[in-house]
Design a protein around this nucleic acid. Structure first.
Length: 222
DNA sequence: GTCCAGGGCCTAC
DNA sequence: GTAGGCCATGGA
């Protein structure tokens, strides 16, 4: 299966080019983006990030200081803004309490330990935690999401139940431990599913189509 | 007007 | 343990 996944990766990369994720200037901005993009388009999330930036609120200290209600008004475009304001504050308070506000100290942790910590914060689930680890922390943690599930279903890469952990294990068990590969693979899947190949059945131009039909595997096979 | 986007939490069963 | 409701914008 590793060969198949690498072949798909090469085709996606050749078709779309490197996505150069995450589109952010700082690691904190990646984390804020990972929370704000939950169940909303990147465009809407980006608007909210820019708004925070414009009002000098793109730092842990600023987010802790500002009132939750006020914070919410700056991120309205990101949808579910009251909840997301609470989530941003929850993360910043955790960062302040556990690491004196230092992102570097936080990422000095062991990946698995930090993943457990992040998952214990209100508002950070598996996808958000893995996005933070991979794209802000540059740690080896594959990101799965609804697009990844759709991708696997569409190309029959895996049979049976497809929950977050199964999909994530499928990629981590069948890919070499390579940060660049993890980074680009997830970004390319999102790009492929979102902007280019939304329809089922597959479009004729689909770069993955030619190698998809013959390869099916049961979970765990390599 | 309708649909759906780079989720996660809470509650009821 | 898990299905389903809730949150509640903006662009296509």
């Amino acid at each position: 299966m590793e060969e198949v996944l690498l072949e798909i990766f090469d085709k996606l990369l050749k078709s779309y080019g490197p996505r150069k994720w995450w589109p952010a200037r700082t690691r904190f901005e990646v984390i804020v983006g990972a929370i704000l993009v939950q169940n909303v388009s990147w465009k809407n999330a980006k608007k909210a990030i820019d708004n925070l930036k414009h009002h000098g609120l793109l730092s842990p200290e600023a987010i802790i200081s500002v009132k939750e209600k006020t914070l919410a008004t700056y991120i309205i475009s990101s949808r579910f803004y009251n909840q997301k304001a609470r989530k941003l504050k929850a993360f910043c308070k955790y960062l302040e309490k556990e690491y004196c506000g230092s992102i570097s100290k936080m990422f000095a942790n062991d990946t698995d330990d930090l993943r457990k910590e992040l998952l214990s914060i209100n508002g950070i689930g598996k996808e958000t935690a893995d996005s933070i680890l991979l794209y802000a922390g540059r740690k080896l943690s594959f990101v799965s999401d609804s697009y990844t599930k759709r991708f696997i279903e569409r190309y029959n890469l895996l049979k049976g139940e497809l929950n977050y952990d199964i999909i994530r294990s499928f990629f981590t068990n069948n890919l070499p431990e390579d940060l660049y590969l993890y980074n680009e693979y997830h970004a390319l899947i999102v790009h492929h599913c979102y902007s280019t190949c939304k329809s089922i059945p597959l479009c004729n131009e689909c770069p993955v189509k030619s190698i998809s039909s013959k390869n099916m595997c049961a979970f765990g096979s390599k």
